[in-house]
Amino acid sequence: MALLDMKDVRGGYGDADILQGVSITVAEKEIVVIVGPNGAGKSTAMKAVFGLLNVRGGQIVFDGDDITHWAPNRIVQRGICYVPQVDNVFREMTVHENLEMGGFLRSGDLSAAYDRIYGLFPDLKAKRRNLAGDLSGGQRQMVAMGRALMLEPKLLLLDEPTAGLSPKYMEQIFQITRDVRDHGVSILLVEQHAKQALAFCDRGYVLATGANRHEGTGQALLADREVAEMFLGG
């Protein structure tokens, strides 16, 4: 059974439906990417999972629980963490304090959790006392992911983690995403860089105008002529 099963979800932020029926599944330890043209509803679909949307149809099941109408803080405690695309760190707090906020809901000794994050992101260890707002874009993305991983989620949602990053950092973020998966976390991410993302993911979904258009393994989607012409610029 899939860890996340989103079936024919419809809904939007206000009264208008942005999602016209989106179905996505994510299995344990799988990296799934959502691509598509601007306005396809990629980020919106991800926000629906995290309870940030008025869902008016369909169902979202996570790990056996129907979470369709749960509030975000309840979803967090159930094991899904979300990294927004922008404003995803506490700029005026140190790197370490950002991680502490990530572990806000946990009690007891968190030193093992910190060690794990600093092991995944060695760059951050040296900068632990710096303000997150003073870091480079790539490092900030690491702080954002590190903060989300402090709760040891089963599923991590990443909204365009490579937006605005140089190719070098993009590759690094993808590598870290794989490392996180290897720690047993499933990942659902939205990507603007469709080619690179499809090449690195396990499976992908192509959305258009708020609905599923194509789905398959990353390699299969890359090889699909229609996908290539419509969304990947040939």
């Binding site: 967090v76 506490f90 906020m101």
Partner: peptide, 11 residues
Amino acid sequence: DNPDLARLSGV
């Protein structure tokens, strides 16, 4: 600092 992110963190 960032109210949305604080809520996402479970505050």
